[in-house]
Design a protein around this nucleic acid. Structure first.
Lengths: 265, 265
DNA sequence: CGTTCTTGTCCATACTATGGACAAGAGACG
DNA sequence: CGTCTCTTGTCCATAGTATGGACAAGAACG
């Protein structure tokens, strides 16, 4: 366990120390958040965080006492508790991005007809924050608002990674390595997809998280050039042939630029 | 299996140790939550938590690095950050209580015509989770959804304290002592109001948090007898004379029982 | 019945988090 | 202009907290 603190040439604010336990608790919370209502078994938290079992056990149970985590009676799984939304009430409700993206989602959804997702980056995860269902009778509804996945396993994640410096993207992908196997992918595959997306101008996965679906994602950058979100269309694969892929991508790219304007002002 | 644990007669499992830092971080977060969007200066966090300044400083800045806390540029105040609502998305949106209380709030609001609040207990705080504006032209709107206050300073807090065992209520009030002065009250006053509410059957404050207003609150208990929430009417004092106070209290009491039924089933 | 999962607990020890002391910036006041 | 009094930020020796190896026990399976 080497301890590098002087190494960081960048101005990113990583190096503050004296709070190992707090950082660990937050890492645990983020994993639990990925489990949504169903929660996550302790063993999986141990696996994905890389912490030891006694440590995770201790953290989780303290968080339960504090009301931050709940335990499901039947399954024994751990999940995000009641107090988290209660703390969240301290912030004004609809985020800037959500407001800015609303008209674009409306418009693109009407134009395309398939399910649209708005996904943000949060740490090393993607988080679905909005969804619009289209008019076409077959809709891909697998991803719900609140769904959280390691950056890299969805087309939205690939798009977001493609929009950041290769160096940084690689670091995130490597950090997520342990979590990839649950999604049947790996570091090399993800990095390949990211490179492809960078060349293409948008993220794409021929095989979505659900069999037989295909997804296309464009990134949305903040004024300082950091990707903050992605806009995604998911549909059954047969509905997204090469020609239509092109059409859909153009609409998404157009709307992504509009959203960037809106959050930039 | 060894039985080192003394046969725990108590149900509450308070004593787990090995996580001082995490508990402290959460205490800080709850104080920050009380500051809502505006946030709280460091010095006030120090005062109200009783922690030392270096400790609070360290905690807050680690939380900033993790995205859990934000710092406002101009004022330098610390506030709940973006990641908290993001974590909250892991839970299904409308809570059981909110759903159960909805029709009662609707009905009572129509009947009474003054502003109605639904307030829950969270730790040692009250938290406003719903609000209905009535038809009468003068409305008390001082309390917004997300508003958080030490248990005891609002009529809702008094009602909730009155509904729990005196022992426990006292413990909470004492724990909140340091935070009372900001609301110009103290332990003795609060305990007096709680006793009065217990006798009366509902909580009441002749002087609300805003000058010239009066509030009436009934408590709502969960099936196991613990108070979980309070329903409050606030109005300008002149609109709540003894006769109307009686009327309003009866409506609130009736609806509180209905909500209890709804969450009990 | 053993086997292989899982979660829960203990406790000596290492190293993390602590807080006293110091410093520096921002206003307020004479 | 200095001086006082706020605030926030930082350092670092060390007290004492959090750590994790080891053990235990329950659960599911065949």
């Amino acid at each position: 366990m080497d301890k590098r603190r002087a190494t960081s040439a960048r101005r990113a604010v990583e190096p503050r120390q004296g709070a190992q336990a707090i950082r660990r608790a937050l890492a645990v919370l983020r994993i639990l958040a990925a489990g949504r209502e169903d929660g996550v078994p302790l063993a999986e938290v141990v696996r994905t965080t890389g912490l030891t079992r006694p440590t995770v056990h201790r953290i989780v149970h303290v968080l339960i006492e504090e009301g931050i985590v709940e335990r499901h009676g039947r399954s024994g799984r751990y999940a995000i508790g009641n107090q988290v939304p209660e703390l969240a009430l301290a912030r004004p409700r609809p985020s800037r991005l959500l407001v800015a993206a609303n008209p674009s989602l409306q418009r693109a959804s009407a134009e395309i007809g398939d399910t649209l997702f708005l996904t943000v980056r949060t740490g090393n995860d993607t988080l679905c924050v909005d969804r619009r269902i289209g008019v076409y009778p077959i809709q891909v509804l697998s991803i719900e608002i609140g769904a959280r996945r390691p950056l890299g396993v969805s087309s939205a994640g690939v798009a977001i990674l493609a929009a950041m410096p290769a160096q940084e993207a690689r670091k995130i992908v490597v950090a997520n390595e342990k979590r990839f196997e649950a999604y049947r992918t790996d570091v090399a595959t993800v990095l390949g997809e990211v490179t492809a997306a960078r060349r293409l101008g948008y993220g794409m996965r021929e095989t979505g998280l659900v069999q037989g679906t295909k997804s296309i994602s464009t990134w949305i950058k903040t004024p300082d050039g950091q990707p903050a979100a992605a806009m995604t269309v998911s549909a059954v694969r047969t509905r997204l042939g090469p020609r239509r892929e092109q059409e859909v991508a153009e609409i998404l790219l157009r709307e992504a630029r509009i959203i960037e304007q809106a959050i930039g002002g």
